[in-house]
């Protein structure tokens, strides 16, 4: 399950039920206790490991793992291929930029901002995954 599918269609369905053809939204009576109860219900689905709750958390885990693996592959290609590249293409290994041999420049300097950049992207995107999951669980309209 991907998060955008989880959040977007729900908003659409809600609108479709509440106001079929109108442009002005209808007044809806909100009873706070009801909202709280529904919210609790979604949380219960998670903590009691119902089918829905299980599917929800599996979806989050899969999204987070896919993110981590994708970024790991970027590192594998970006850094992990270098030893092989230096062997297969000796020209790359002996190239110089500003008088400094390319391998020294790549491994001595460029590697660190590269690693940090990947880490930064991961922090942002994994937090986004979690925010979307939290919104999904926190939505009062999930159980109708």
């Amino acid at each position: 399950m991907t998060q955008p599918e989880g959040t977007q269609p729900k908003g659409g369905r809600e609108r479709a039920q509440a106001q079929p053809e109108q442009t002005l939204p209808q007044r809806v009576r909100i009873v706070l206790a009801e909202v709280a109860r529904r919210r609790r219900a979604t949380r219960q689905e998670l903590t009691e490991q119902t089918k829905v709750g299980d599917a929800l958390i599996r979806g989050l885990i899969r999204a987070q793992l896919a993110l981590a693996l994708r970024l790991a592959i970027v590192v594998l290609i970006g850094l992990g291929s270098l030893p092989l590249l230096f062997v297969l293409a000796p020209g790359v290994a002996s190239a110089r930029i500003g008088g400094i041999p390319l391998p020294w420049l790549l491994l001595g300097v460029v590697a660190y901002p590269f690693l940090f950049g990947i880490g930064w992207v991961h922090t942002r995107m994994s937090e986004r995954n979690e925010r979307e999951f939290a919104n999904l669980v926190g939505r009062p309209d999930r159980h109708e």
């Binding site: 030893p83 590697a111 994994s126």
Partner: peptide, 24 residues
């Protein structure tokens, strides 16, 4: 020589692996 630069790169990259798969 230059091959030894993999030590510091790896010592730092270990924290990326930790971040991606383990930290939170």
């Amino acid at each position: 020589g230059v091959d030894m630069l993999w030590y510091p790169v790896g010592f730092a990259a270990g924290y990326l692996a930790l971040l991606l798969f383990v930290a939170a």
